[in-house]
């Protein structure tokens, strides 16, 4: 892999991370982040916010051939900022507004002018909350780790 490709892979990884966090954010978190921006960018819809569903695929025995497990709601949106950056928003929530804000933030994250601001006001708080949720849950779960003893029957 040459360095240009490496850069590209790194960029994709970073974008994957923020798109995922924007999807998992609460609408309240997104609205709060939006309200904190003083000079809000103008944007137009490339794809108006819409709600629908996706089919979740699983594998037989967890590892075998794929099958259709069941559906999940999804909302999505695509926007273009006045300065040309294009953003895509996705979330499993049944919320058009969530998809719209996620798309706008995705576009703003690609814009060096806004990036660090959006990172600190929106992306990292969501990442921290998710991490906190995971570690609290892991701590509680770990306390239920169990060692069963097998009793030998007929032992003198």
């Amino acid at each position: 892999m040459n360095s240009a490709e490496q850069m590209k892979t790194m960029d994709i990884e970073r974008r994957r991370r923020w798109i995922g966090l924007l999807a998992k954010a609460t609408l309240q978190e997104l609205e709060q982040g939006w309200s904190q921006i003083e000079s809000k960018p103008e944007y137009t819809f490339i794809r108006v916010p819409e709600t629908g569903q996706i089919m979740i695929r699983a594998r037989t025995g967890g590892v075998g051939p794929q099958f259709n497990l069941g559906e999940m709601t999804m909302s999505r949106c695509a926007v273009r900022l006045a300065n040309g950056y294009i953003g895509f928003g996705y979330t499993a929530k049944h919320q058009k507004r969530h998809a719209e804000l996620a798309a706008v933030f995705d576009a703003m994250m690609q814009d060096p002018v806004y990036r660090s601001m959006i990172e600190t006001t929106v992306i990292e708080p969501v990442a921290d909350r998710e991490q906190h949720k995971r570690s609290v849950s892991a701590t509680k779960i770990a306390s239920t780790n169990v060692d069963f003893f097998t009793l030998v029957r007929g032992d003198d």
């Binding site: 629908g52 996706i54 089919m55 695929r57």
Partner: peptide
């Protein structure tokens, strides 16, 4: 709800 796609397995 329209089908917007399928998930990765």
């Amino acid at each position: 709800l329209p089908r917007l796609g399928v998930s990765e397995p």
